[in-house]
Design a protein around this nucleic acid. Structure first.
Lengths: 250, 250
DNA sequence: TAATAATGTGTCGCAATGACACTAGGAATA
DNA sequence: TATTCCTAGTGTCATTGCGACACATTATTA
């Protein structure tokens, strides 16, 4: 949602909304970027609506860009949420009331089906930006239990389980990690997404077998112990693996 | 779509449609149930719209039931198609004009985003039933190239590729095969979906290892050669495998 | 009754995987 | 400066999974 433009059915299609689960990785934790609603004091997923000349994918890009500043995302449709009850007791409505009078109340006062997208972003590059209805943004760890708008908690759950499945079929990490990273860092990412520990040596063997990593000459210094090698993704092979899929399952 | 009720925005939500790719298996071929449009003479996917009190899943169930007579389906959301251009040059509009005057032309004359579902059904149980806009239904083999409405060809493509992916993660066949079936029949189904041949012996080993089959005492007689054993799915283990997922990848 | 064709069953070798042990190096401490 | 501690790098071994393949069995039909 644009910070200034009013929201109404002149610009946006009725009944269709988009919710984005934006994953970031920091401090060895998988986190989700959430908005804190001014009025209801609940957390909400960054979301928005579909313009008349956009595809859903373009709209999701736009929405994530407005909240993070980032372009060129890893972005994936994962499910449509269509329970007729889901937009009842829509506290966002209250927030819409609070945020100004230019918005079309009748626009919000309708049933919405919401298309869920998840995005993987580089935590450090994100400039979290609240929207009209929120006073601030937080990166919230998945383990933290916070009060959330509507069915947003379930949406996050579904996003994670989808991400886990996808993890066995395609490489992940390009958008979540810095350009140069160590094997232990990559492993932590996998462990975090999968929610369980992996064997250090077996992980390395398998990952290297995928043949999507370039081992760099440099090592990561400044750590408290033996300095690990740095790796980067081999873009060509990474892309190919994205298309063709990986082989194994963790 | 009901055969009698007019279609308008009193009953159905604007902008949202549903397209169902209904897969059936016969003659060792994977087929899709298509409607033949009266006016445009093109084929179309069975589709419909979302009522105000339905979930998308319920609507898809209803739509498939109207076209096949079947209940209790294997039904899965696989993608939303949202290209703004997709519903332009909507020849269904012409068909709507032809089919009667009760329909609300302005309802059709809007942009639609369409939620794709695929269904797996037992070919022999289906009673194909055309809708208002079609003169008949056909089971069309995937290899057959027919002229299709809008982006329906792409929708089918996406349904198949999704089905292929899912094949490695969950058991399939319960809804596509008769209750008792032979190993060669099951194999043919897999080969058809995957589009390639599999080794008879390796297939059997792997399938039995999944531990979702009950080997029956009976054999299938009447065939031209050695009579194969009959199997049926062990419902308990099949359900469990649906939830937990299978291990390997083909 | 023999030929044909499809099914049932088993084996062999390679590659992937999980479990595990030892060595190397950097920082902190004594 | 040497010792300790922690982490990273590398290798081995046994088991399993899987692809490729051979042979025996059984029903039909010529």
């Amino acid at each position: 949602m644009d910070k200034t433009a009013p929201i109404n059915s002149t610009e946006y299609m009725n009944h269709i909304s988009i919710d984005c689960v934006i994953f970031g990785f920091s401090n060895n934790e998988l986190k989700v970027l959430l908005l804190h609603l001014k009025y209801s004091k609940e957390y909400s997923l960054p979301g928005g609506f579909l313009k008349y000349d956009e595809t859903l994918e373009q709209a999701a890009q736009r929405i994530v860009k407005e909240r993070t500043g980032l372009d060129n995302l890893f972005l994936k449709q994962f499910k449509v949420f269509s329970d007729p009850e889901r937009s009842k007791s829509n506290k966002a409505l209250l927030d819409a009331d609070m945020a100004g009078t230019d918005h079309d109340k009748s626009f919000f006062d309708k049933r919405f089906i919401s298309v869920g997208f998840y995005a993987l972003v580089d935590f450090r590059k994100v400039k979290p930006t609240p929207d009209l209805f929120s006073d601030h943004c937080d990166w919230v760890s998945l383990n933290t239990d916070v009060s959330m708008l509507l069915d947003h908690k379930q949406i996050i759950e579904k996003a994670i389980s989808t991400l886990r499945l996808q993890l066995s079929q395609q490489p992940i990490g390009l958008k979540l990690l810095p350009r140069k990273f160590t094997m232990p860092e990559l492993q932590k990412l996998y462990e975090t997404i999968l929610g369980r520990d992996l064997d250090r040596r077996n992980f390395q063997r398998k990952m290297l077998n995928y043949n999507i990593l370039d081992k760099l000459k440099e090592r990561k210094t400044g750590g408290a112990h033996k300095s690990p090698y740095l790796y980067s993704f081999n873009m060509e092979r990474y892309q190919k693996a994205l298309e063709d899929g990986l082989s194994g399952i963790w």
